[in-house]
Write a protein that binds this DNA or RNA. Structure first.
Lengths: 96, 96
DNA sequence: GCAACCTTAGCACGATCGTGTCAAGCTTGA
DNA sequence: TCAAGCTTGACACGATCGTGCTAAGGTTGC
């Protein structure tokens, strides 16, 4: 389990010269609050790792933000007839 | 596949009275850029859904931000001896 | 009215997740 | 030196992901 979290980059302990993992209070706190996050919000490990990626890769963050902006941008609009019409047309073309 | 994305809350088309899904240009754009996100950045569907959750649930966002702040906060510190010692002690106690 | 298309529900199936356990070897402390 | 404890690598195993397909039935357009 600890090695799994380490591979995910979430809780990475220091190493002694011998290679032993050194879990300090910092890591213990991370482990405790991670368990809380999972229990309270149902956050998966991969999801938290993704949030970490978002924070470390600005390009990814920008791309995701852009995508999400397009998602909930104009949500309450009534469907204009032409959209429905366009939709039919595109559906036909979607065979490709 | 489309129904899967819909259940994930990522691409949710309007519905006709009959129940038919109405995919307009907006949804087609979402689908296209979603495919690009996945291909370019290796983003999984669940991960994007999580980013959406982050944007919609402020409490979750705050909790995750706090956790991440603790993760990469003081990363370059040399290990003080007492941390190593504490680590031993806590390890003994971790049998519980 | 009928063919073509949509709906949901459900099963299948390989891939990955999350976790545990076992084997073989290196480290450490008394 | 020797037992206890750590390391990595590997396998196992249920659960979920991502995707496709089929079945049974409603909608639509000609």
């Amino acid at each position: 389990m600890l090695r799994y979290l380490e591979r995910a980059g979430l809780v990475v302990p220091r190493r002694a010269q011998s290679g032993y993992r050194l879990y300090g209070i910092r890591e213990l706190n991370q482990l405790r609050s991670l368990a809380e996050l999972r229990q309270v919000f149902g956050v998966e490990i991969g999801e938290l790792a993704f949030a970490l990626r978002l924070r470390r890769e600005p390009a990814l963050r920008a791309a995701v933000d852009t995508w999400l902006a397009g998602t909930d941008a104009v949500d309450g609009l009534p469907a204009p007839g032409w959209v429905e019409w366009e939709q039919r047309k595109h559906e036909r073309l979607l065979a490709a």
